[in-house]
């Protein structure tokens, strides 16, 4: 025993190095199974507070741009107001419609930290459980989709960005209606890849790509981007389509968090399917 202690003491530099590396690698491995992991750091209140202060200062430099985007959106929403329509029939607009149940509601949130230069990028929002944000909610930007909430604390939420190697989003082409899977391979933050499009489909350059709505999370028909190029994978019968994101992920400020009011119902059906 004494010898062992002497031995450990003599080479303590090496053993301390080894144990610290083991701790670090454990942290990495635990962190990589991201669905099961509580990402401590992303929702940590201390880092959250520091980033919020830093962002509060930077925010001033973006006010002009933010105002412009908000104004553009207001114009769009104004167009949709009942007042903007000419009433041709007395029974055109009802809030409590028996045909239309509201399926999605929206919350605004501000981005307080965002990366685009990693293989797995995450975004932090300034709202959390207290504001009604839950896990698995979709996040949208005014001009595109942003990602999915993976963890919430009381006042902050962590979002897995579309720019993440684990991203799988069901998307469809506007012209043909064909559904494929959107992934991101980490090479360019402006480009995503749409895979699993069968070769018999005619693909048009500059065609729009929308969410398909098959994942429940994202409302159907949200713009993702436009087709810039496509190629046949060697030895495969599927196209790989390059999609230029409509949203500039490097310049995210305000986002919308989407709540699917029917999520529970749909999940129940899914569970029933799994039994068979």
């Amino acid at each position: 025993m004494k010898n062992l202690i002497t031995f450990l003491w003599k080479y303590y530099f090496f053993f301390l190095f080894l144990s610290l590396e083991v701790v670090a690698v454990l942290l990495i491995v635990k962190n990589n199974y991201y669905q099961r992991t509580i990402i401590i750091n992303s929702t940590n209140d201390v880092t959250g507070a520091i980033l919020k202060t830093s962002d509060g200062i930077i925010e001033y430099f973006h006010l002009k741009k933010a105002n412009q985007i908000l104004a553009e959106e207001n114009v769009n929403f104004r167009k949709m107001l009942p007042q903007s329509f000419l009433k041709t029939d007395t029974a055109t607009f009802f809030r409590d419609d028996t045909l239309y149940n509201q399926q999605y509601t929206y919350l605004t949130a501000k981005v307080i930290s965002n990366t685009t230069n990693r293989i797995n990028n995450f975004i932090k929002l300034n709202k959390g459980k207290n504001h009604g944000i839950e896990k698995h909610m979709a996040v949208l930007a005014p001009d595109g989709i942003v990602g999915q909430v993976i963890e919430v604390s009381d006042n902050y939420a962590s979002v897995m960005s579309v720019l993440n190697s684990h991203t799988r989003i069901s998307a469809k082409l506007k012209s043909s209606g064909q559904v494929g899977t959107l992934i991101w391979n980490g090479e360019n933050y402006r480009l995503g890849k749409l895979v699993d499009i069968p070769t018999h489909v005619q693909i048009q350059i500059n065609d729009s790509v929308f969410t398909s709505g098959y994942s429940y999370m994202f409302p159907e028909g949200q713009l993702i981007g436009t087709v810039s190029d496509y190629e046949l994978e060697s030895g495969q019968s599927f196209y790989q389509v390059d999609v230029v994101f409509s949203c500039d992920y490097n310049n995210l400020r305000w986002v919308y968090v989407v709540r699917n009011l029917m999520q529970k119902e749909l999940n129940l059906l899914d569970e029933a399917e799994e039994i068979f």
């Binding site: 610290l20 590396e21 701790v23 670090a24 942290l27 797995n120």
Partner: peptide, 28 residues
């Protein structure tokens, strides 16, 4: 001292990790 060198470097890496969602990578 060796322990101070290792521990302070570990803390530095961990500090960076906390801010960029890469828990453990920079520390290692």
């Amino acid at each position: 001292a060796g322990w101070a060198l290792l521990l302070s470097s570990f803390l530095m890496g961990l500090g960076v990790d906390f801010f960029c969602n890469s828990l453990g990578m920079n520390a290692a």
